[in-house]
Amino acid sequence: MTDFWQMGGYALYVWPSYALFLAVVVYWLVAPWLEVKRTLRKMKQRKRRQHARANTGEQHESQA
């Protein structure tokens, strides 16, 4: 097993290559997925705020 990690003496070059590759792969799976979720959440918040504002507006009118 230690043989495997030593990569015939090239561990210093082989492992960082694979690490960078995998980091980029994982990043480009997570980042767009989070972006979709974040956008949907923002839109929901905006909609809720608009509803709240519309409701209080109606109340003021009925009071007047």
């Binding site: 990569m7 015939g8 003496g9 090239y10 070059y13 082989v14 290559s17 694979y18 960078l20 590759f21």
Partner: peptide, 9 residues
Amino acid sequence: GESYRILYV
């Protein structure tokens, strides 16, 4: 040797 495995990424 093993260094060529970088090729696969």
